[in-house]
Design a protein around this nucleic acid. Structure first.
Lengths: 340, 340
DNA sequence: TAGGACGATGTTATCGATAACAACGATTGT
DNA sequence: ACAATCGTTGTTATCGATAACATCGTCCTA
């Protein structure tokens, strides 16, 4: 916002030019009330001539309605979340809703600030990515909310008004089953930032307890300080193989880390999946891009976003929506032949 | 926005409870004017007790100032743009600015709509990703803008108030030089969506003309209907190798497509870089994750975002900023030994 | 032909804050 | 001791729209 001298065109200017009252012009602009064809045309013409651009601040303030939806995700640069977001957008935008995106970086402080700032714009709805700690301030902000709140990504709990996501517990179990079926016994997990990402942690724990039920101890190699990227996967896999050279299978927090792990295993001459099985997570397009197609758990990310968005639209149109939607999960088998 | 019965707490309620006028409360809340310690404390206490949440719509409307910055990028799910965005956020958020993200999907219609909607919130600034067609409506919206406009990603032209990006022409030439130095003669380009992404197209053309200057005809295999992902890289590389089996080097639109290409070449038994050299683009972390480290052009994406954001902040604080910033580019050499 | 119903338009108050300036007591300098 | 100054606080108008209701012909029906 920066005054460039030339006063901005307001609805009043449009009305004057069209020779009607402001109210009439307002009705024409948002297609409300009943206005004669002729007047409508005049107003629209005037608006066009003057280059009128509505002021949503004023509009929303007055009507106490808005068409903006606030979304908070941990990271924009992580395909996993940005694809959920694309799903959200694909539903909301055609319906004339704006999405407003915030990036929490898994930091409860940032999340709280974002929440406060976004709510101060009185959004029509709020989509929150699940899976992180939440500050007390944030909780009380959410309690006092006056818009629907939908949780994304985390489908284990039915918090807020609705949740759309996957069951991370189921995901952990699924991987355990997959490995057990193939008679793996020496199993490891490689991940990062589990203290901040509660969803990933839940998958990890589910895997661990499913294995323990069969008398197997999961070996975990994780880092809290390194990012969840390929390079970290490489490094941690290195640590892992040094301390536990007999490992038969490794499950990674995500596909990117798994790729890093694959590249390390290749370097030291360990064949995948002959000697070591590798299982990623998310089913990103990466998994198919590498020569040794990665075994991974496919998560319908776009769909999670679109389901959440549709639920929000329903709530906004007065329908009663409750509970949660759990995304279907499946293990996608990678190469079984050696393709190193 | 949805009335839940309980009336929202306004500044007036806070003021009443603190026993001061609304104006005084307002000053306290935004740290303006000079207010006694005691009053400040009272007001803050009252605000806290009531759970007051400012209404930015009203605030911005009245002051004609806002702390929101609108950003439009082609795709959120594409790491390339989302990392630029992270750079923007890393600078703006600590300064109390909100970013407001729109996804144009390279569609001029959507971009125009987004522009209109975002400008209707009277943002403090506008960051626009360069490299796509722009509708006439969008152009006139931009002409009537009353906030600074900064162009991202495209550093070839100095449009708008400032540009921060890379020179795509330089990038194309850089790749040409790299290949020519290595005595490549049969060179191909694989890409997608060049009609919509003008930046990618410019790189392509620069490569083509640099080669032609040395008497080499660039062979291009592109698609307008497929997405710029690994799978498309695979498919197009397949087409390419069938029609031009003698190819010595392939440059891809981005790293993801290059990975797809690599995986295809591997499948049909073509060794990289022995028989065919592969050069990606962007220097994403992917490039290092694969066994045959990809040769690519490193682009400092985060930095582009942060430079743009800092320029915006300067403009907002009244400093005069002009021209453009061009990101340094360099070719990152991948494996030279065979690591298939 | 009176009395509604209805379509089209205008009037007034309000949304929740801030800008600009006025007011007022206390301090300060001469 | 009196005006000037300063720090603090309050008053009024305004930002640009919309909600709710009022108005005023016109057309229809009994």
């Amino acid at each position: 916002m920066e005054g460039k001298g030339k006063r901005v065109v307001t609805l009043r200017d449009v009305a004057q030019r069209a020779g009607v009252s402001t109210m009439t012009a307002s009705k024409v602009m948002r297609g409300a009330g009943s206005i004669s064809e002729k007047t409508q045309h005049n107003v629209r013409q005037a608006a066009h001539d003057l280059g009128y651009l509505p002021n949503s601040l004023a509009g929303s303030l007055s009507s106490r309605k808005s068409r903006m939806v606030a979304v908070i995700i941990p990271s924009i640069a992580d395909v996993v979340f940005s694809e959920v977001l694309s799903g959200v957008n694909s539903v909301l935008r055609p319906c004339g809703f704006q999405t407003f995106i915030g990036e929490s970086l898994f930091d409860p402080g940032i999340e709280t600030d974002l929440l406060r700032e976004m709510l101060s714009f009185r959004p029509a709805g709020l989509l929150l990515n699940g899976g992180m700690m939440r500050s007390l301030d944030a909780q009380s902000l959410l309690e006092r909310r006056n818009c629907p709140v939908i949780r994304l990504w985390d489908g284990d709990h039915a918090e807020h008004d609705f949740s759309a996501g996957l069951s991370h517990e189921e995901a952990g179990r699924l991987v355990a089953e997959h490995l057990l079926e193939r008679n793996m016994r020496r199993i490891a997990y490689v991940g990062a930032e589990l203290n901040r990402d509660l969803c990933a942690r839940r998958r990890h724990l589910a895997l661990q307890s499913a294995l323990r039920a069969k008398g197997i101890d999961l070996i975990s190699m994780t880092s809290e300080s390194m990012p969840r990227q390929a390079e970290t996967g490489r490094v941690l896999t290195g640590n892992l193989m040094e301390t536990h050279p007999q490992i038969e299978a490794i499950h990674f927090l995500n596909d990117a880390m798994a790729l890093g792990g694959l590249s390390y295993l290749h370097e030291i001459g360990i064949r995948v999946p002959d000697r070591v099985s590798v299982v990623g997570f998310n089913g990103t397009s990466l998994a198919n891009a590498v020569r040794t197609r990665l075994t991974t758990v496919d998560v319908p990310r776009m769909e999670i976003g679109s389901v959440a968005a549709r639920a929000l639209l329903q709530m906004l149109s007065g329908e009663r929506v409750e509970g949660r939607w759990q995304a279907p999960l499946r293990v996608v088998q990678g190469n079984t032949t050696v393709m190193i």
